[in-house]
């Protein structure tokens, strides 16, 4: 019964996703593309942050590196878009493989700070490599199709595929051996080591997968928007948004990235449209309110509503 319900819901989503580009305005398409991008980023973070429990603030580093990897390759060689996107993703994954073994030895605050700092270092390096990246002037990536409607729909399709791929990768990971290892690490890393789990290996693999997804997302974003500069694609808030999304959805679930990203986008769009000059401040207040009043996300809300069935033991707060 539950399974058929789930399948029905999936089918409905698929129908909506396919029908959207044929029926909607460019504004809605743009919004939906952003939604898909957020889902992909949240799913990317969920692998390392949700499953392994490592508070990674490296999403901006991966995103920016992916954007610049693709940007540089595409503007220097003029190769196929897909190849450029892959280059961006691979660049971010390689970076994760390089830095991961070092910073994944750290725990808690120290890991958070180290991962946050990687984005700043990358931004400064790319800022100063002027002849390759254009430095602070940014990098122009002219669109390859002149039809605006078609372009919007093309990137919608690519982002949706990416989001589906990212969520799918999360499902596969959580069902595979690595998913089991990551959950062990999340619960008690020392015990996981005692059990004989090569924790550094699995953490690095999760970090690299997170990097790959965020990197490809950044690459697609770069060609979609058509212009990137270091302050834009390495912005700190890019690292925080996916975390907030997953927290909205409820930490530790596979659907959190999807639900959380959609809710977050909705809130963000409302704030943007109504309070332009103060949107960052309102976003900050929303984040604070969410963490203070709804620490378990929407998952928590469902059990708190008066008509909801009480779970026997209640939801334990992770610490």
């Amino acid at each position: 019964m539950k399974r058929t319900g789930g399948l029905l819901l999936l089918g409905l989503c698929a129908v909506v996703l396919v029908a959207l580009p044929f029926t909607s305005s460019n504004y809605i398409i743009r919004l939906a593309t952003f939604a898909a991008m957020y889902v992909a980023l949240a799913a990317s973070w969920n692998v390392i942050g949700g499953m392994a429990g490592y508070p990674s603030f490296a999403t901006a580093a991966f995103f920016g590196l992916g954007a610049y990897g693709a940007g540089v390759v595409l503007s220097k060689t003029g190769t196929f878009l897909v190849l450029g996107w892959l280059c961006g993703g691979v660049a971010a994954a390689l970076f994760a493989l390089l830095v991961g073994p070092a910073i994944l030895r750290l725990r808690g605050h120290y890991f958070a700070v180290a991962s946050l700092v990687t984005a700043v270092v990358l931004r400064e390096i790319i800022n100063s490599a002027t002849n390759l990246t254009g430095g602070g002037m940014g990098l122009n990536l002219p669109p390859r199709i002149s039809d605006v409607d078609l372009l919007a729909r093309q990137y919608y399709a690519v982002m949706v595929l990416l989001a589906v791929g990212a969520v799918g990768a999360g499902v596969l990971v959580s069902r595979a051996k690595i998913g089991w290892a990551l959950r062990c690490i999340e619960q008690n890393e020392d015990a996981a080591v005692v059990l004989g789990i090569d924790t550094l290996y699995y953490k690095t693999a999760a970090f690299a997968l997170s990097g790959l997804i965020a990197g490809i997302t950044g690459a697609v974003y770069a060609t979609w928007i058509g212009y990137i500069d270091p302050t834009d694609v390495f912005e700190d808030i890019l690292s925080v948004k996916p975390i907030v999304m997953v927290l909205i959805g409820g930490l530790g679930t596979l659907y959190a990235p999807v639900v959380g990203a959609l809710c977050f986008l909705l809130l963000e769009e409302l704030v943007w449209r109504n309070i332009l000059s103060f949107h960052a401040g309102v976003l900050g207040l929303l984040i604070v309110a969410l963490l203070v009043f709804l620490p378990g996300g929407l998952k928590d809300l469902a059990t708190r509503l008066p008509w909801a069935r009480r779970s026997p033991a209640g939801e334990a707060v992770r610490s």
């Binding site: 942050g49 429990g53 508070p55 603030f57 808690g108 605050h109 958070a112 700190d236 808030i237 925080v240 975390i243 907030v244 927290l247 000059s277 103060f278 949107h279 960052a280 401040g281 309102v282 976003l283 900050g284 207040l285 929303l286 984040i287 604070v288 963490l291 203070v292 620490p295 707060v317 992770r318 610490s319």
Partner: peptide, 30 residues
């Protein structure tokens, strides 16, 4: 505010103070 998340995981307190910073910086910018 912060006392409410004092025992929460790193992620929560960090994200919370980040949200407060977004607010304060935006207020100062305006």
């Amino acid at each position: 505010i912060v006392n409410r998340v004092i025992d929460a995981p790193v992620l929560v307190s960090l994200t919370l103070t980040f949200g407060l910073t977004l607010f304060l910086d935006n207020v100062m910018l305006n």
